[in-house]
């Protein structure tokens, strides 16, 4: 116990081992197997097959996740903004209580709820019809990419809003009052004063949501399992139907690249702002 460095290593060893065995090794293994043929030779054939069979799904995944991420961001700003700048104390309290609920609901349950909500005869259409906004004949099923987006946004917005509202609440309140004092309305304060000051938190929350949504399998399977669908569904299908780990891993590497690109944008931004992540 004389060498403090040794003691330190000993203390972090269990965590390090767990990360290595449960994350780093499987990651490296799956990346390697994406570049390996069934015969064990280095190849790009898995990527060629992935592109040939699933290029539409790759694009579809990107569009869905980017759209959902942007919508989450907008809604989270709206929620956080109202919690920070709202003047009706009761409305603020109700919103604060309500908005976190979806956080505690698993994706698979959210997807199941959404199936009944966005179906042709689901609660959403029935409500719109009973409100006279839609005629029964005009109703369509949203159990396609729109259903996936709605579910993702419903499930992920509270998470982004939680972080963003927290950051907004910890702002120096007088920066908001200073703008108000000079004559800025609340919407303007939100856009020009509040959001720029919490942009780092917002970006982190959106990147985490982006990564989460990229990896969800239950929602696309349950809402819209048919083509075009998301890459996670394709990966599950390659493995379950064909035992084709190579193509599945190639698709996995492509999702890593997508999330990696997003993380890179974030890191570059952090460096430009002077090393502040």
């Amino acid at each position: 116990m004389r060498n403090p460095r040794f003691v330190g290593l000993l203390l972090v060893a269990p965590a390090l081992l767990a990360v290595g065995a449960l994350f780093v090794y499987p990651l490296l293994f799956s990346v390697a197997s994406a570049f390996t043929s069934k015969e064990g030779q280095a190849t790009l054939a898995n990527f060629a097959r992935a592109y040939e069979l699933y290029s539409v799904d790759i694009a579809f995944t990107l569009v869905i996740v980017v759209t959902s991420t942007l919508l989450c961001g907008l809604l989270a700003i709206a929620i956080g903004g109202y919690l920070t700048l709202g003047e009706n104390a009761r409305a603020v309290a109700i919103l604060k209580w309500l908005y976190r609920w979806p956080l505690f609901i698993p994706f698979v349950v959210a997807a199941q709820c959404m199936r009944t909500f966005v179906a042709k005869n689901g609660l959403m259409n029935n409500s719109l019809v009973s409100l006279g906004i839609l005629e029964p004949i005009q109703t369509t099923s949203f159990l396609d990419w729109r259903g996936i987006v709605i579910t993702f946004v419903w499930k992920q917005t509270p998470f982004v809003a939680l972080l963003v509202a927290g950051a907004m609440a910890s702002l120096d309140r007088s920066t908001i009052e200073a703008a108000r004092n000079l004559g800025a309305g609340r919407l303007r304060i939100l856009v020009e004063i509040v959001v720029p000051q919490v942009s780092s938190t917002l970006v982190v929350a959106l990147i985490l949501s982006f990564v989460t949504m990229m990896s969800v399998l239950s929602v696309p399977i349950m809402i819209s399992g048919e083509s075009p669908t998301m890459m996670t569904v394709d990966m599950a299908f390659r493995i379950n139907a064909y035992g084709d780990y190579g193509t599945a891993n190639a698709l996995g590497v492509l999702s890593y690249l997508m999330t990696g690109a997003v993380a890179w944008i974030y890191l570059r931004r952090g460096i430009r702002e002077g090393g502040r992540p």
Binding site: D172, S174, T175, E177, A178, A179, N181, L182, G183, I193, P196, Q197, S199
Partner: peptide, 14 residues
């Protein structure tokens, strides 16, 4: 139509 100088200055850091 008043303008205030705050104790913390309340300048906008961005």
């Amino acid at each position: 139509d008043m303008a205030m100088v705050f104790q913390s200055y309340a300048l906008w850091p961005h």
